[in-house]
């Protein structure tokens, strides 16, 4: 019987299986094992977590394939890795290595300031960041099988992720209620492909899973994003830059599942030690903001 690889259903379905879960950034096998043991649904293999990328400055690139390989060998859960925006070869290398999902990510320094990858051309699925429905729909149009808010990575500050999640969801609601004859103009205003907007209008929701990312630092942050309609949560620097990664990881996983059980979240948040040190977005210069990429 004919076997179809990398179909839309297979790529989007992979993200659907991650729903209600937490994807954690890790920089080595040891961290990957901690993430798996605490209940992460996947890990993102990186050379540095976003807050360290921010601190280090310079050009941030795809991780050393050795690190990605080490992480793939260490755990049985899916492994994701980041490629620079528009970097066809980094993406193809990660695909060839067999990573389960590629994040075409603004956390790394973009390789192309004009064009994103044509993600539909790959067998491996992609996740991309978005701040509004226009960005979301363009990425879906290019073939992204999963979305996430951009937030402001490596800041431990949830404010931007909240803004982006609210924005996308408000725009989805607006499009859903729109008359058919208003849709083309809305597509023009948003800079969104008309066909994708039409699908969103008909389904009343995005056609792919949308996770929260970029600033989640506590169990309450994760629960907040779920409350706002996220399908799941990426935690970048929030776990392994906290005082007690294992405790934080555990608590964030449980808070994501039981995001509206406030007694439980209160208990989970007790004596965790200090969260990662955060950054006020207002203190970031425009060129330091990764979300503009």
């Amino acid at each position: 019987m004919e076997k179809l690889l990398g179909t839309g259903t297979v790529k989007r379905g992979m993200a659907q299986m991650q729903k209600g879960g937490v994807i954690m950034d890790v920089v080595n096998a040891e961290q990957a094992k901690i993430a798996e043991a605490t209940g992460a649904v996947a890990v993102m293999a990186l050379e540095r977590v976003p807050s360290d990328i921010r601190a280090a400055g310079g050009v941030a690139r795809m991780a050393d394939p050795r690190i990605v390989e080490e992480v793939m060998n260490a755990v049985s859960i899916p492994v994701m890795a980041k490629a620079r925006i528009g970097h066809i070869v980094e993406a193809r290398v990660l695909e060839a290595m067999g990573v389960d999902y590629i994040d075409e990510s603004e956390v790394l320094t973009p390789a192309d300031e004009e064009f994103h990858l044509l993600k539909s051309a790959y067998t491996v699925p992609f996740v991309c960041g978005c701040r509004d429905l226009g960005e979301a729909a363009r990425r879906i149009g290019e073939g992204a099988a999963m979305l996430r808010t951009k937030g402001e990575p490596g800041t431990g500050n949830i404010v931007e992720a909240v803004r982006h999640m609210r924005q996308v969801n408000a725009q989805v609601r607006k499009v859903t209620l729109m008359n058919d004859d208003e849709l083309m103009t809305e597509a023009k205003i948003l800079g969104a492909p008309y066909e994708i907007l039409k699908q969103i209008k008909e389904a009343g929701k995005l056609p792919v899973v949308n996770f929260a990312a970029g600033g989640v630092a506590t169990p309450a942050d994760a629960a907040l994003m779920m409350e706002l309609g996220a399908d799941g949560v990426f935690v970048g620097s929030g776990v392994f830059k906290s005082e007690n990664p294992e405790k934080f990881a555990n608590a964030i996983v449980q808070a994501t599942t039981y995001y509206n059980d406030y007694d439980l979240i209160g208990k989970l948040s007790q004596e965790l030690g200090s969260a990662m040190k955060g950054i006020d977005i207002a203190t970031l210069a425009a060129e330091e903001r990764m979300q503009e990429r």
Binding site: M1, E2, K3, L4, L5, G6, T7, T9, V10, G13, M14, P78, E95, G98, V99, D100, Y101, T123, V124, P125
Partner: peptide, 11 residues
């Protein structure tokens, strides 16, 4: 296998 080996087939 891994995700790249994920597939659809008629059964």
């Amino acid at each position: 296998g891994r995700q790249r080996d994920s597939f659809e087939a008629k059964l």
